[in-house]
Simulated scan of single mutants.
Amino acid sequence: MEYLNVESNVITTLFLNILSALYLGFAIMNWMARGTLIGGIYNKPIAIGNLLQFGVGAIALIKIVSGIQIHPEIIISLTVVYMILAILFAYIFVTNPAKIKKQKSYW
Rank of each mutant, 00 (worst) to 15 (best):
Q69I: 12
K44T: 03
I84C: 13
V80G: 12
S105V: 01
L4K: 05
S66T: 14
A98Q: 15
L22G: 07
I76P: 02
I38R: 07
A33R: 08
I87E: 06
I70E: 12
N96T: 12
L16R: 04
M1S: 06
Y82K: 15
E7C: 07
I74K: 15
G39W: 01
M83E: 02
A98L: 14
I59M: 06
G55I: 04
Y23T: 15
L4M: 08
G39C: 01
N43S: 12
K99Q: 15
F15D: 03
I68L: 03
A98V: 14
G55V: 11
G25F: 09
K101L: 08
I48W: 14
I41G: 12
L78P: 10
M83K: 03
Q69D: 14
Q69W: 10
S8P: 05
I11H: 00
A98N: 14
T95Y: 03
I48S: 10
L24H: 07
T13R: 02
I46K: 12
W31K: 06
M29L: 14
A90D: 02
M1L: 11
N30E: 10
K44W: 02
I11K: 00
W31N: 11
Y106H: 11
I64E: 07
I11D: 00
F26C: 00
V56C: 08
A90S: 04
Y42K: 10
Y91N: 11
L51A: 04
I64A: 08
L78F: 13
I68Q: 10
A98E: 15
S105L: 01
N43M: 06
G40D: 03
A60Y: 12
